[in-house]
Amino acid sequence: MKRYAPQIALIAVLAVSLGISMMSSQLDAYYLDIALNVGINIILAVSLNLVNGHTGQFSLGHAAFMAVGAYGASIFTLEAADQLIPMLGGPSTFATGVAFLIALLIGGLCAAFCGWLVGMPSLRLRGDYLAIVTLGFNEIVRVILQNTSGDGPFGGPLGLKGIPAHTSFFWVFAIAALCVYGVASMVNSTYGRGFLAVRDDEIAAGSMGINTTRYKVTAFVTGSFFAGLAGGLYAHLRTTISPEGFNFLKSFDIVVIVILGGMGSTAGVVLAAIVLTVLNEFLRDFEQYRMIVFSLLLIVMMIVRPQGLLPSLPFLKRKKA
């Protein structure tokens, strides 16, 4: 039974989120909103951690993939969902659910495709070049979106409005759970040791028969896919999106979560996503100091404790079988 523990845990989390989701109307809207933000940030941080932490590459453009996912999913919902729902037997919870799932997947796949496009040429390069390329990609996405026509499907500089609020507790935490499960099982398998080998020593990894490019691209595309899903969830939660919302400061926010949580530690990053999201919410009045404190924390930590602020917790860690 023990060897199936990860699957059982996954199913349990899915069931609990469905339960909470069904009684969400009785929950305080403010705290529910924070919880949903936490979930979205978990998806973003855990997926970025696959690239930056486990595989040792350094992407600074995660928000760009989130943007691609957000726009992809929203455009599908706004333009095509109305035609799709009658085919699924008319308006019903089931039909809107399926339409939303398709929208999310389209967003995720668009983001994954962009990840592949950006990753193929740039992952041959060392980590710090990748940082600049992804940062550049972030800017390219923003500039392209801002220069679209205001009447067109992308909405120009003002972005998109009136996206239906499909995102619920269940959707967010089901995808967050799948993301954590997916990344953790990928990395912990024998196949997945390849990601860590690439991070530790790329030349040695190549000499051990590991196709380093394929691993890096796999990590990058998977990371982009989940960022795209997170973008779709975000768009259908906020109901409006604009190109400015996905600028590189958003990417930095996700990077900060990953670094403070400890690069390469899934549990640490999940914890950091929870703590920092909640903290951000309560420190809203001190917005101007928040980034100063975070940036100082980054600098001091790299000197004193580069492995991350949160201790590596025993759960989800490599089992000493």
């Binding site: 040792g56 350094f58 600074l60 060392r126 980590g127 710090d128 940082a131 930095f252 990077v255 670094i259 101007q288 980034m291 100063i292 975070f294 940036s295 100082l296 924390l297 980054l298 600098i299 790299m302 000197i303 580069p306």
Partner: peptide, 18 residues
Amino acid sequence: PRLNVLITAIGVSLFIEY
């Protein structure tokens, strides 16, 4: 590791800006 220095540089940049 170079990555640590890169992260610090990002930290310094944000610190100066804010």
